[in-house]
Design a protein around this nucleic acid. Structure first.
Length: 475
RNA sequence: GCGCCCUUCGUCUAGCGGUCUAGGACGUUGCCCUUUCACGGCAAAAACACGGGUUCGAGUCCCGUAGGGCGCGCCA
């Protein structure tokens, strides 16, 4: 039997980080077993489903590098089939019409809560003659759930979980307008789509019990369930927009690489001994359901950043330039850049990338650290650079002339000149290099100074130096 | 309130009755390397929620307590 997993988001918002991890787990499990991962959009809530959300989810998955097999299934398009299944249950006496009105149900819940009883539907139409149906009320179809015994879910992550049937009420299968509820639709679709493994957040654990009852009533096999713990915010509370509950596209904007985010996400809940870094191939080889823990994890940006830095350092230089270029539509304007890099700048970026990528944790930092490559003269020095240059300006006297004389403008050639200069004025190299760096890059931090000068070229280097040295120090 | 789930360093986790003087990673601190910052290397501080059992022996099994989470819709 081939493994079939599915990712089934509801299009009421973007693809958040927890959904991204669920998709990743489904994807990995399918890949691991040479199976398929299907994508189903759970849009039976017509009020809240939007096309924008569908697009955001699809984009998010693509950006994360998680592809799905076959066409996207839109759940609502299968409503007729859902209805048919509900009616078949009705015909077999495993479901019944319920004429209770929303107000009635609301009262029922309130009373129950007030009296300290569990708030469940009381089954008032379960055995009642439909002939007693009130005028003008369109009924829903409810499942005639067992009232005795227990419902068991053998979960690949949670283990054996047992509910007493008396604690579970008769859920609605078909709404009064004839549309299916989520509970029915999932069961029918998973069955019809031959889904073998349902991997989802453990907020669905209770649903698993109710869905199991539907499967049983239908006489269908229950797929293997795997309910993975949720991801919490850094404070342990539910994920909110303030911390981790951003759409995955927000992580893209923040400058994270999809491979880094995947690696981070997979280790939230799943582990493989002491291994922290996984290539995609390694993940596919190692991933399993039994190594998923049962306790919730907190989202930690610091670790994500570390991982991202790791992947950036490893990445190909041209790839990184493409990646930051991809951020330009969002970040370019405020940095005086267009939507793409001019070819000349692109070349410089690639050339400088080995030194740049060592020092950045995100693509945004990478772009900013490359400031000296695209800055317009005269440079605007940041605070640290200003004070460095202020202190060391005197030690730069005579440097421009010596540099102007250089014929071999290479990192090594330039380094020799600067080292000589430092020696000549009795200063340590750092005492000369730092103010020089400030003047040339506008920052206190940059890649190796001589590499910077080499990439900048002789003319630009000298011009920038003159800009800064001819200016009287700011009072 | 009822049901279900969870609880090892600040965080992610290893641990599947003895090898745990509890390991790794991120973060933190110190040192080294060094033209800066990073990277890298070395070192340090840092955890089995609590209480009962079971057992020769418990982080590991059982039961409570406390704390946290999820669910309890004609939402998904």
């Amino acid at each position: 039997m081939t493994v079939v997993t599915r990712f089934a988001p509801s299009p009421t918002g973007f693809l958040h980080i927890g959904g991204g991890r669920t998709a990743l787990f489904n994807w990995l499990y399918a890949k691991r077993h040479g199976g398929k991962m299907l994508l189903r959009i759970e849009d039976t809530d017509r009020e809240r489903s939007t096309d924008a959300a569908i697009e955001a989810i699809l984009d998010g998955l693509k950006w994360l590098g998680l592809d799905w097999d076959g066409d996207v299934v839109y759940q609502f398009s299968r409503a007729a089939r859902h209805k048919e299944v509900a009616e078949s249950l009705l015909a077999e006496g495993r479901a019944y019409y319920c004429y209770a009105t929303p107000q009635e149900l609301e009262e029922m819940r309130e009373t129950a809560r007030r009296e300290g009883r569990p708030s469940r539907y009381d089954g008032r139409w379960r055995d009642r003659d439909p002939a007693e149906a009130p005028e003008g009320v369109k009924p829903v179809i409810r499942l005639k759930a067992p009232t005795e015994g227990e419902t068991v879910v053998e979960d690949a992550v949670q283990g054996r979980v047992v509910w007493q049937n008396k604690d579970l009420d008769d859920l609605v299968l078909l709404r009064s307008d004839g549309t299916p509820t989520y509970m029915l639709a999932v069961v029918v679709d998973d069955h019809d789509m031959d889904v073998t493994h349902v991997i989802r957040g453990d907020d669905h654990l209770t649903n698993a019990a109710r869905q199991t009852q539907i499967y049983k009533a239908l006489g269908w096999d229950v797929p293997q369930m795997a309910h993975v713990p949720l991801i919490h915010g850094p404070d342990g509370a539910k994920l909110s927009k303030r911390h981790g509950a951003l759409g995955v596209e927000a992580y893209r904007s923040l400058g994270y690489l999809p491979e880094a985010l995947r690696n981070y996400l997979v280790r939230l809940g799943w582990s493989h001994g002491d291994q922290e870094i996984f290539s995609t191939e390694e993940l596919i080889q190692a991933f399993d359901l039994s190594s998923i823990g049962r306790s919730p994890a907190r989202f930690d940006f610091a670790k994500l950043e570390n991982l991202n830095g790791h992947y950036m350092r490893q990445a190909d230089d041209a790839y990184l330039v493409e990646a930051i270029e991809g951020l330009l539509p969002e970040l370019g304007d405020e940095r005086g850049l267009g939507r793409t890099f001019p070819p000349a700048l692109k070349q410089k970026l690639v050339a400088a990338m080995p030194g740049l990528k060592e020092r950045a944790k995100t693509l945004v930092e990478l772009l900013d650290s490359a400031y000296y490559l695209y800055a317009q003269r005269p440079l605007k020095l940041d605070e640290k650079a200003q004070s460095l240059l202020g202190d060391g300006r005197a030690r730069l006297d005579g440097i421009p002339a010596k540099l102007r004389a250089v014929t071999d403008w290479s990192a090594a050639g330039v380094e020799a000149v600067v080292r000589e200069h430092a020696e000549a004025i009795g200063a340590k190299l750092g005492q000369v290099a730092q103010p020089l760096r400030a003047a040339l890059t506008g920052r206190a931090t940059s890649p190796g100074l001589f590499d910077v000068m080499a990439v900048l070229g002789k003319d630009e280097t000298l011009s920038r130096l003159e800009d800064q040295l001819s200016n009287a120090p700011a009072a």
